[in-house]
Simulated scan of single mutants.
Amino acid sequence: MDRLPKIALPAVFIIILLIILISKSAVTIGSGEAGVLYKTFGGGVVTEKPPLGEGFHLVAPWNKVYVYEVRQQEVFEQMKVLSSNGLEIQIDASAWFQPKYENLGRLHQEKSEQYKERILLPAIRSAARSVVGRYTPEQLYSSKRDAIQNEIFEETKAIVDEQYIQLNEILVRDVTLPPTIRESIENKLKQEQASLEYEFKLVTAQKEAERQRIEAQGKADANRILSASLTDKILQDKGIEATLELSKSPNAKVVVVGSGDDGLPLILGNN
């Protein structure tokens, strides 16, 4: 009985030590995350193997695991850039991105956990300055919004692709011009719209006048052709046909007494 305390104390110490070691060695990688293993005595960051996936992992207590979110993320950026004529333009944009999973170790080793601040955001700013500098404020305000967005995306992607970052989309959410420039552009657009409406009405009126002229000309041509075709002989034949049809009426007694001045028969009697 006297020996139990001497055996129990080391056992308790060992159990406590094991609990500490396991707690230091156990790593749980959450959903949408991956871990970069750092070996203190084994060459530092592990880059030749895939990162640690989701779930429970045991690592040596002297090593460390850096956890990264590898699902798609979004970052917002507000930039002041210059247009082609030197005016300051404010652009509000956001980027959809995620680290390249297979290169997560190299991303951590070369760029660190601050890769968004060190690589992605500076790349977006640089691309925005380059793209916006090719356009006027009028183009930025109206017709070229989609083109600007696509160009910023392409130029940013070309930069970050080699930096182990996957860029999925750039969204230009707002373009803010100086108030005086914006008012000037809006007034110009209103004047252009009014001019287009006037031109439309003018063209419509011209087309209606042309339609009426063509219709009148057609009627005149038809009357002229008809008049030219109605000879005296044709008119006399038509008159005879009409007289004969009338003579067949049951309400009239027909007596032909010679002819009239125009050579047509005369019909007498109405009983």
Rank of each mutant, 00 (worst) to 15 (best):
Phe200Ile: 05
Phe200Cys: 07
Phe200Thr: 06
Phe200Arg: 08
Phe200Gln: 06
Lys201Leu: 10
Lys201Ala: 09
Lys201Ile: 07
Lys201Tyr: 10
Leu202Asn: 03
Leu202Ser: 06
Leu202Ile: 08
Leu202Glu: 02
Leu202Val: 06
Leu202Cys: 03
Leu202Gln: 09
Leu202Phe: 04
Val203Thr: 05
Val203Leu: 06
Val203Glu: 10
Val203Asn: 07
Val203Arg: 07
Val203Ala: 07
Thr204Arg: 02
Thr204Ser: 06
Thr204Gly: 03
Thr204Pro: 01
Thr204Asp: 00
Thr204Val: 04
Thr204Asn: 01
Thr204Leu: 03
Thr204Lys: 01
Ala205His: 04
Ala205Met: 05
Ala205Phe: 03
Gln206Val: 01
Gln206Phe: 00
Gln206Gly: 01
Lys207Ser: 04
Lys207Asn: 06
Lys207Phe: 03
Lys207Met: 04
Lys207His: 04
Lys207Cys: 03
Lys207Ala: 09
Lys207Gly: 01
Glu208Ser: 01
Glu208Ala: 03
Glu208Asp: 03
Glu208Trp: 00
Glu208Thr: 03
Glu208Met: 00
Ala209Cys: 00
Ala209Ser: 03
Ala209Thr: 03
Ala209Leu: 09
Ala209Met: 08
Glu210His: 00
Glu210Thr: 01
Glu210Leu: 05
Glu210Asn: 08
Glu210Gln: 02
Arg211Tyr: 01
Arg211Val: 00
Arg211Cys: 00
Arg211Thr: 00
Gln212Phe: 04
Gln212Lys: 08
Gln212Asp: 10
Arg213Pro: 06
Arg213Glu: 10
Arg213Trp: 09
Arg213Ala: 09
Arg213Leu: 11
Arg213Asn: 09
Arg213His: 07
Ile214Cys: 05
Ile214Glu: 05
Ile214Gly: 04
Ile214Phe: 05
Ile214Ser: 05
Glu215Ile: 04
Glu215Ala: 07
Glu215Pro: 04
Glu215Gly: 01
Glu215Tyr: 08
Ala216Val: 12
Ala216Trp: 10
Ala216Gln: 13
Gln217Cys: 09
Gln217Ser: 11
Gln217Ile: 11
Gly218Phe: 10
Lys219Glu: 09
Lys219Phe: 12
Asp221Arg: 11
Asp221Gln: 15
Asp221Pro: 00
Asp221Ser: 08
Ala222Lys: 12
Ala222Ile: 12
Ala222Gly: 12
Ala222Asp: 10
Asn223Asp: 15
Asn223Trp: 14
Asn223Lys: 13
Asn223His: 14
Asn223Ser: 13
Arg224Pro: 06
Arg224Val: 08
Arg224Gly: 09
Arg224Trp: 11
Arg224Asp: 08
Arg224Tyr: 09
Ile225Val: 15
Ile225Thr: 12
Ile225Gln: 07
Leu226Ser: 02
Leu226Gly: 01
Leu226Cys: 02
Leu226Thr: 02
Ser227Cys: 13
Ser227Ile: 14
Ser227Met: 14
Ser227Pro: 05
Ser227Gly: 13
Ala228Lys: 13
Ala228Phe: 12
Ala228Leu: 14
Ala228Asp: 14
Ala228Trp: 10
Ser229His: 11
Ser229Glu: 14
Ser229Cys: 11
Ser229Tyr: 12
Ser229Leu: 13
Ser229Ala: 14
Leu230Glu: 14
Leu230Gln: 15
Leu230Thr: 14
Leu230Phe: 14
Leu230Tyr: 13
Thr231Phe: 10
Thr231Val: 12
Thr231Ala: 11
Thr231Trp: 04
Asp232Leu: 15
Asp232Phe: 15
Asp232His: 14
Asp232Ser: 15
Asp232Gly: 14
Asp232Gln: 15
Asp232Thr: 15
